[in-house]
Design a binder for these strands. Sequence first.
DNA 1: CTGTTAACTTAACGGCGTTAACTTAACGCT
DNA 2: AGCGTTAAGTTAACGCCGTTAAGTTAACAG
Lengths: 248, 248
Amino acid sequence: MPKLADPLRAAETEASILDAARDILAEDGLDALSMRAVAARVGLSATALYNYFDNKQALVDRVVARGFRRFESYLWRALEGVPSSGFDRLQALGAAYLRFSRENEQYFKIMFTIQPEDPREIEQLPGGGGYRILRESVADAIAAGQMRDADPDLIALYMWSSVHGLATLSLACDFSSECSCGDHDWAEDGMTGERLFELFGEFLAEGLKPRNGSGDPTVNTANDASGVGGTGRNGSRGNRRNVDDRAS
Amino acid sequence: MPKLADPLRAAETEASILDAARDILAEDGLDALSMRAVAARVGLSATALYNYFDNKQALVDRVVARGFRRFESYLWRALEGVPSSGFDRLQALGAAYLRFSRENEQYFKIMFTIQPEDPREIEQLPGGGGYRILRESVADAIAAGQMRDADPDLIALYMWSSVHGLATLSLACDFSSECSCGDHDWAEDGMTGERLFELFGEFLAEGLKPRNGSGDPTVNTANDASGVGGTGRNGSRGNRRNVDDRAS
DNA sequence: CTGTTAACTTAACGGCGTTAACTTAACGCT
DNA sequence: AGCGTTAAGTTAACGCCGTTAAGTTAACAG
């Protein structure tokens, strides 16, 4: 690996390599992201890339790090014009999180799948990758008296888990189609992660325990199996244990 | 692909191939899972595997499907002896979910990462893969009056998202060490996903909105930045926008 | 004894990440 | 002007990958 003395030119080439890698990833997925493909896209031979990156893993790590920066500024933009305290800000953050995961599916997948070769180098996940914004918004909401008085890190992590889980599951499984959850037909209104997150807002704010005269009745629609239905609509076949594959 | 007329022998060989693939995956990760490696482990040549599986993707899909079945029976076992209504059952489910994700890290990762070649074949995710158990437990809790009266699918999905997000983030980022969330030092008590899930129980049940005389005060310890701290401990450097990488 | 065929092998193709060796162009220096 | 140095890139090659084509072996049917 030569030393790449000219820093300007080197930085330009490096950036164009990273751009090419990002484009290939977004267009054709991680499997299509080969050193030869990236090199061809920037008009170099594959071995030339090794002047700029130690190996493929290092290149991918850089792509991921860039993804986290882009993710962070995406979240920042989502907060523009949203008042700086209360649940609105957190709702906007969650919605942006889900929107990003859908618009940048491949990016999002590798961001939380690839583990960097050198785990010391992660100033990105989650410290710089949006977590600070979330934590700050949580602290604001607590200070404004709109959120319970608990460890802001714990609350931030709780909200992050919920939204991240929803984003991940939305990518792995299409709720609104054949991969139906239960036998409830959600395809009717094209259930998306973002729509679900709106519905989850009530649960996040008020919890799951029953309460008298709870707020928003909209989430209580389409409820036909409560109070008397016992184990619910699936109760009849719910007890099949299917133990055959236990030791596999 | 010959017809494999002897069904008993064929099923045995197929099972041993799947076992080998599962073992390699668990021991050395997805990158080490090659047709040649699997074949060597069962004492065959790589091409022999094509008598039993169309291609590598089909083999991996079967491994994933087996993983889901194992996952499901794992969750079932976690419910043995737990009373069949109320939050206890859901708490046990969540804890088992996180335990499985830690004990079977590689398995868990590909279960929700790999997307099957033929998406019709997913009777596994999430229908058979534990979702039914969760939904049933939710319906039980609603029927017992221990949970609010809302669409059980919606509640189940909410809880699933929370736990799944926590599991995924726990694997991608070690909360208790260098990848510290915020500047809060959680390494003191070796923060794990399972421990976090215990702490989240209060939020899941009671919500995040403030309430007078809220229940468990243990989650309110270690809280030093609320009420007056404004934007929290990171407020000073929190406003760096870092817009440089916007178009990358 | 022969033909069929299930179950498997070896050989090979193109693509992958990566290394080694070589080329080319620009530069400083006497 | 001629020289060596070196940045930046090339081609060739290695071993591994998924996969296909062709050939081998053993059992069994007639």
